[in-house]
Simulated assay, not measured.
Amino acid sequence: MDYRTLGQSGLRVSAIGLGCMGMSHAYGAPADRRDMTELLADAVDMGYTFFDTAESYGTVDNPHDNEELLGEALKPFRDKIAIATKFGITFENLAAPGVHAVVTDSRPEVIRRSVEGSLRRLQTDHIDLYYQHRTDPRVEPETVASVMAELIKEGKVLHWGLSEASVEYLRRAHSVCPVTAVQNRYSMMARWNEALFPVLQELGIGFIAFSPLANGLLSRCYTATDHFDVANDYRAYMPQFQEDSFGKNKALFSLLDELAERKHATPAQISLAWMLCKKPWIVPIPGTRKLCRLKENIGAADISLSAEEIKGIDEALDAMHMSDVFSGSLVKSRAI
């Protein structure tokens, strides 16, 4: 595995991270705890050192299931890995089917409660990277950054980051307490966050790409005949998994297949290598419940795409017709 430093922070992580949300949340019923414990140990053995979770990834019965899973499974390897988790949201009406709206709350006292809860569930005395999951319009970025500075001084947090924040918010927060990483949606189907790259380069901030395979579609493992549980699987509602989307995405699939054949790789590996080769401070965090996918994803770090090849792919994507892609849950402000 290759390793990367996120911006100017000094936080060094595996070039491919592991997004762990889907083990507990949004991709059907939670996976078997013992199976996921074994998978996480396998990931460490392969060279993964960067594991992503959040206090809100869970179920109605256990809203914090994912942090508890990682806390127990990764405890034997804690000195070898970096764990990222998040504060600042709760899911609205988690028992209902469909994609759940999120409600933001980043009041300082809430952040304090959140960090203590995450430390306890993760069975650790520090969080390597602590993200504000979504910005709270009722709390100024300087206020959030000041709390992060305090937590870093106390040693409870080593680095902090933002997810889905505006450039203005990022700059204001960064001026108070330097931001290590921004975690945003990014894939060949979701490229709007490339507009942030010059700012991240300027400020020395890393970029963590979540949903780098467009929630799995770019792995080319799905067809129009696949169906998902409407009760607890977000993919049932995502536009890229609707039956008519597969026809709309034929050109994209053909591009992936052609590149995969040329590079002796898989479409998923090409999708990940494309972003890895763009910037040395981009780290994708694809999720999986399967050992074979864990091995496949890590192989993307060994694939080289030249600047000319990247340019050609980008130009092809710019001119390409494709379906809509899921852009995230509705974000709501908390009641006063």
Rank of each mutant, 00 (worst) to 15 (best):
A190Q: 14
A190G: 02
R191A: 04
R191H: 07
R191S: 09
W192G: 01
N193D: 13
N193A: 06
E194V: 00
F197K: 04
F197P: 00
F197D: 01
F197R: 02
P198K: 09
V199S: 06
L200C: 04
Q201A: 14
E202I: 00
E202K: 00
L203P: 08
L203W: 08
G204I: 01
G206H: 08
G206A: 07
F207P: 00
I208C: 04
I208W: 07
I208M: 13
I208Q: 09
A209G: 09
A209C: 11
A209D: 14
F210L: 02
S211T: 04
P212I: 04
L213C: 01
A214C: 12
A214T: 10
N215K: 11
N215C: 09
G216Q: 12
S219R: 09
S219G: 14
S219W: 05
S219C: 07
R220C: 14
C221A: 15
C221T: 15
C221R: 15
Y222I: 06
T223N: 08
A224S: 13
A224I: 02
T225M: 05
H227I: 05
F228M: 10
D229I: 10
V230A: 14
V230T: 15
V230N: 12
A231Y: 11
A231V: 11
N232K: 08
N232M: 11
N232F: 05
Y234M: 13
Y234R: 11
Y234C: 09
Y234S: 13
R235H: 12
R235C: 10
R235Y: 12
A236Y: 13
A236D: 12
A236S: 14
Y237M: 06
Y237V: 09
Y237A: 11
M238D: 13
M238S: 14
P239L: 10
F241T: 04
F241E: 10
Q242S: 11
Q242Y: 01
E243Q: 13
S245H: 07
F246K: 07
F246T: 09
F246M: 07
G247S: 13
G247A: 14
K248A: 11
N249K: 06
K250T: 13
L252P: 01
L252S: 03
F253T: 01
S254F: 06
S254I: 03
L255K: 03
L255H: 06
L255N: 03
L255F: 05
L255R: 05
L256G: 01
L256V: 02
L256F: 07
D257N: 11
D257S: 14
L259T: 00
L259P: 00
L259R: 08
A260L: 09
E261P: 00
E261M: 04
E261F: 04
R262G: 00
K263S: 02
K263I: 07
H264A: 13
H264I: 03
H264G: 02
A265F: 09
A265S: 15
